[in-house]
Each structure stands twice: as structure tokens, then as C-alpha cells.
Design a protein around this nucleic acid. Structure first.
Lengths: 249, 249
DNA sequence: CGGAGTTAAGGTCAATTTGACTTTAAGTCA
DNA sequence: TGACTTAAAGTCAAATTGACCTTAACTCCG
């Protein structure tokens, strides 16, 4: 944990950080998108290009200041909607980052910022809204979650580390909490569900054992519909009927 | 999660919460103390009595504002030391609470406060420092974690809910992370370790199966010492040799 | 001194869960 | 029609878990 925080004191601590720290909200928004080469899907997230110093021109997590009349979660939901047009169905607090040297590039004095970061899961359909609609300006674009910022001089602030931490949380949580459904539509095949797990966990799962495990969860109910159109036996569609958001953080 | 946040808007939102929200750090400090009746130990935590409105005279979590030159974790460690004299060996961020109606009693206008809460585990020995030393003023006292505030008109702010959430996290985390040792001294018997689990989880564990489980963890090494003085066969002392703090938050 | 009492420490055994693999079903495509 | 592909279900051995039993090693009391 502590590596995510401030490193050793900078050279000019006395110059900056004398104002009270200000509060900002940022969001890590995960969506699963098919790879370009039509292989397995991978995790993507929207980033915004910074138009101001510090880190002007580089990519950063969507975010903004916390206004006085909204709760933290409302603020996350709002700036998510404002920057990407999305209304995630899964949204949860990730962590509060408050190291001393994260507000600016080293040696540039500026106000200290504490960021409370949320993470969200959205469905591909919702994600398309951004890509295809009138929404996507040049300064908002989808990036691969695992490699965003590579070869571009990195992401702004400590956002690369924040994304890595969010990825770690997602991978952990998907193993014990029922959140994978938030990546999918209302109905889905077991193969689609398995693809979600494989993409998040980064390894293949035995289809038969995966099926057995899923079938032991009563909240996943079979429908009487099948997905037609493949070049093989049509798989049954399932539906998740549990609570929208588990109360286990 | 969301039940921990703001409830419905109060009657006078427009009066308060127009200043930028201010930031505070609070800490939930758990220690295991033997029950008065010498039964099983229970979880206790130090609370401080409020000397100002709002909630003047009621008990609250130790905490204070975040100063400009310290990281969040440093701030938690500092105000923990200042209010209780303790230096916890386990300290981790719990959650950032930022509901709209948590800063004051309903219908009293005041500035909005966002609290970043940490939780800590301390050893009984360290805990004694507070109780026996010159430290304990009338306005700092240990309370049972599960019942603090009962019959006294409740705790200040939303601190009762925060403690319940910290308890929930502790109970969850002790099942998969190696944190129980932070309640104990450097060496301990398996029975002592089991008592920690039983106190936190609130149920008894089969001693034989517990032993088998613990022995499968290589980080718990037997010493060649035994705890003498009981009226029975002396149990072997063990030592935890793993990393002080796991990197899994 | 010797037996009762107490907890430590280790073992057995059946039930459950997990991982690797096989078999059969049901569609499409040439 | 037969080759091909994935769906769906079953088999089996290994590992894990929960309930319980046996033996060891100390203290206490008579």
C-alpha cells in the first residue's frame, strides 16, 4: 500500500502544500471490448487528455473537484457522466490517495490534492455510446487498461499506479463477489461469462468446471432462450437475478 | 455501502455546505482485552470525548484535520499517537466517508466534512500504555467495539456506523489475511491465536482443526520455548515470521 | 507417591470441493 | 450425409474440511 503514497520528501516541500489540501474525485471505468484481432476481449478504460499544466497533453483519469452539495458517490457518478456519457451500473470506492508528491511533477510547486478514486464497471453497449455517438471528442479516448500510457511518456500524476491498483482489486473481487455480470448484457451465455473471467484473470478456465461452478450459484438462472447464429449447437442464455450491488465492499 | 453515505437531503441543504468540503482523518483502533469476568477476550477501542459542538460531550473516534505536509497515513499515525500514545503495527485505510449530512446534527448548519478513516490493530501491551500510564485523561477511554455508545445517546457523527464497518472489514480480512498476529506479542501459543480468531469472529473454533490449519502456514514457525505456569501441559510458543504488512489491501 | 483433572498435540474418517478429463448432444457447413 | 464445432453433462482421483478420538504432559489434591 504505502508505495502508492508519497515517496521521500521533495526538495521544496515548503514551497507547496501550505494551503489546505483540496479534494478531487476520479474514476476508473472498466469495460470489456473485443480485441482488434477478434481474439479474447480485453479491459479498456476511458481517459481524458489534460488541457492544463501540470501534465498538459498527457492522458489522465476522468475526474474533477468535489462540489459542496453532493456526496462522494454522486460526484463520481456525475463526472463519469459528464466526461463519458456513461451511467455505470456498478460503482464503488477504490481508495483515497493523498501522498505529498502526487499533485504535480516534482519541482513544480502547486497545491496539494487528495483524490478519492472510484471504480466502475460498464457494459460494452454503454461503452459504445461514447465511441459511436457524438460524444467522443479528441480529448476523450479508450485505452487498454494494462498498457495505457506506454510509449507516450506515461500517464498524468500517479494515475498509472491507480489503474494498476484498480486492476488488482477487480481481479481479486471477481473471484469472490458477483460482479462479472456488470460487464454483460441482461442475458448471456456461460461461454460469454467465462470470457469475462478469463479476460480479467488473464488465464483460461476449464469450460466444464466453470459451468459446474456457475450452476451452483442460485442467482444465475437459466432462461428458456438460446443464442442462435453460431456455427454450432446454440448455447442457453442465463440471467443474473441477485442484488444489483452486493453490500460487501 | 451506500447506506453509510448520506441519507435523504436534509431540510436546509442550502444553508450549509457551501464552503469547499474540509478533510479530516479518523482512526478506528482495535485492541483485544480480556473481559472483566475473565472469559474470552473482546474487542475494544479508544474514543475521545468531544469538547465542542456539535455532539459536545459525546464519544467520538480519535481524529483531526489533515495538515498540509503529511500524507494520509502519516496523519493517521500522528493523531493516533497524539490521542492515545500508541504506535500501531498494523495500519490501513478503511474508507472515505463523505455524505452530506454527517458533519453535524441534522438542522444545525456547519461546514461539510469528508473523513478519511484508517483502522489499526494494537497489542494489549501497547494498549496498557494508555490505560496505566499518565496518558488517560477523562476524555479518552476504552470502549467495547460492539456496544460503544449504547445507552449514552449514541456516538458522535456517524461514528457508530464507521465502527461497524471497520468491524466487518476486520472479520472479513482475518479470514484470508495474516493479521491476527498484530493483536499478540512476539511469541504466542496456538490457543492464544485461536482466542483472537474466536473473539473477532464471534464463534468457537475446533482446536484440533485450527491447529492443522495454522500448521499449514509456513510463516508461523514453532519456537523451542514453551509457556509455563498453566495447570496443564505447557503449550509450545510460536512466532510469526512473514512480512509485517501484507500488500493486499 | 499416585490418580484425577486439564489442556496440548496429533491422528482417523467421512463428506465436500476441486481439477483433469471423457462422453454425448445439437447445431452449422460443405 | 458426414465432418466440424461447441454445449452440456458425467466420471474419477486428489485435496480440503468438519467432526471426533487417542495419547502426551503437565498441575493439583489427597
Amino acid at each position: 500500500m504505502s508505495t502508492l503514497f508519497a515517496g521521500p520528501f521533495g526538495a521544496n516541500v515548503s514551497e507547496r502544500a501550505q494551503l489546505p489540501p483540496s479534494l478531487a474525485i476520479s474514476t476508473v471505468i472498466f469495460a470489456l471490448k473485443p480485441s482488434r484481432d477478434e481474439g479474447t476481449p480485453t479491459l479498456w478504460l476511458p481517459l481524458v487528455r489534460r488541457v492544463k499544466e501540470p501534465y498538459k497533453g498527457q492522458w489522465a483519469l476522468p475526474g474533477g473537484p468535489l462540489t459542496a452539495t453532493e456526496s462522494l458517490e454522486d460526484a463520481a457518478r456525475r463526472n463519469l457522466r459528464e466526461t463519458t456519457g456513461l451511467a455505470p451500473e456498478y460503482l464503488e470506492q477504490l481508495y483515497a490517495f493523498g501522498g505529498l508528491d502526487r499533485a504535480s511533477r516534482p519541482s513544480l510547486g502547486s497545491q496539494r490534492v487528495v483524490s478519492i478514486v472510484y471504480w466502475a464497471l460498464v457494459r460494452p453497449m454503454e461503452a459504445e455510446l461514447l465511441v459511436d455517438g457524438e460524444g467522443e471528442a479528441d480529448n476523450v479516448a479508450w485505452h487498454r487498461a494494462d498498457t495505457a500510457g506506454e510509449g507516450e511518456g506515461g500517464l498524468a500524476f500517479d494515475h498509472r499506479e491507480i489503474i494498476d491498483y484498480a486492476l488488482w482489486r477487480l481481479r481479486n473481487k471477481i473471484e469472490y463477489a458477483q460482479i462479472a455480470y456488470h460487464f454483460l448484457g441482461e442475458t448471456f451465455t456461460l461461454a460469454q461469462l467465462r470470457e469475462v473471467y478469463e479476460a480479467v484473470l488473464g488465464r483460461t478456465l476449464d469450460p466444464a468446471n466453470f459451468r459446474r461452478q456457475v450452476k451452483s450459484v442460485p442467482q444465475i438462472e437459466p432462461t428458456d432462450q438460446f443464442l442462435e447464429g453460431g456455427k454450432h449447437r446454440p448455447p442457453r442464455l442465463y440471467r443474473y437475478t441477485g442484488p444489483a450491488q452486493r453490500s460487501t465492499t
